[in-house]
Computed example of a mutant assay.
Amino acid sequence: MSRAATPARRAGAIGRSAMVHLVLGGYCLLVLAPIALVLLNSFKTRAGIFDDPLGLPTHATLSLAGYGKVLGDAAIGHMFVNSLVVTSVSLVAILLLGAMAAWALTEYGFLGNRLLALFLAFGIMVPIRLGSVAILQEMVALDLVNTLTALVLVYIAQGLPLAVMILSEFVAAVPQELKDAARCDGVGEYRIFFQVVLPLIRPAVATVAVFTMVPIWNDLWFPLILAPSEQTQTITLGVQQFVGQFATDWNAVLAALSLAVLPILVLYAVFSRQLIRGITAGAVK
């Protein structure tokens, strides 16, 4: 009976595995197809883009005019720098403050601990864009409109709740024996956090970094509201200058979008192993 059932189980397992791979492959195709379409058409002439948007660049349609215009525009370079500054500063602050808050919430019992955790969970459920008017009024009162500081502060507030909730699960999983042994050796709390806890939760930190960076880099809403001036425009907002009411420079638009995707792809390539480890570790908790 068991021998007869074994081939059936194997066939069922193979079928389920094939189905899972088919679904994941379809999802990857759905996600990567638009990116591939943008990259392919960024190397075409305007006529080639409209005549055959799904085809590969040919000798007749190959053109680097869009990249020449984008790379030759000093304002675009300045926008890239703005995006890099805002994203990197926000990311470092979110990871550092989020990890420290997760350590405090999981390691120390204090009055209002659960209430604070609930407050952070509420920050995940309520989109920050609902408070755009109040945020704008606050930035006007603080004289921070058209500054990168305004964007950094908003993105820190936006990313902290999710970072704390994710990192709290991983910090809580650090063996208590390691921390107690360090305390017995006279190690201070800051050194325990930075030298014992942080190295053990690197996969979670990488996961939070990727999930936090993408919405910050791609955001158009808050740069348009809080920092629309030429000196503070980000690359996502800057691409709009190639979009006109009557004529759109699609070569430049697609080239700028292709270059804007590069930092995210590089970050994923660098942290892909840690990202996958963090996701799979969170799946079994």
Rank of each mutant, 00 (worst) to 15 (best):
F222A: 09
I135S: 03
D219F: 01
W221Q: 13
G77Y: 06
I94C: 01
R114E: 14
F211S: 09
N82A: 06
T207H: 08
F122P: 04
P127A: 04
R10W: 08
L111M: 13
A173Y: 03
F211R: 00
A4E: 13
E189K: 06
F242K: 00
W221L: 15
R277N: 15
A157I: 05
L148Y: 00
G25V: 06
L118A: 14
F271S: 01
L96K: 00
D249Q: 02
K179G: 04
D52C: 01
Y190V: 13
F222D: 01
T61E: 11
I276H: 05
T58P: 06
L29Q: 04
S272V: 08
Q137I: 07
T6G: 01
Q233V: 07
L237V: 14
R277L: 11
A204M: 06
V266W: 08
I14A: 15
L54V: 12
V239Y: 06
S42I: 04
P223A: 09
V23M: 12
A255V: 07
A163Y: 01
Y268C: 09
A141N: 14
D143L: 07
L30W: 14
E189W: 05
T6P: 00
M79V: 08
G131Q: 01
A173S: 15
V266Q: 05
S88F: 11
I235S: 09
L148H: 11
V171M: 02
G25N: 03
L136D: 07
E189Y: 02
Q240I: 05
I166S: 03
I35E: 07
L224M: 13
E107A: 13
V85C: 03
A121L: 15
E138A: 15
A134C: 02
L275M: 08
A36M: 13
L97W: 02
L237T: 15
T45L: 07
L115F: 12
N218I: 05
V86F: 02
V174N: 03
N82E: 03
Y108Q: 09
F242M: 04
W221R: 05
I128P: 00
R114L: 10
Q245N: 12
V205T: 05
H21V: 13
R183G: 06
G68N: 13
L136M: 12
F110N: 03
V126S: 07
R3L: 13
T149R: 08
I166E: 08
R277C: 05
R183D: 02
V86S: 02
T232V: 12
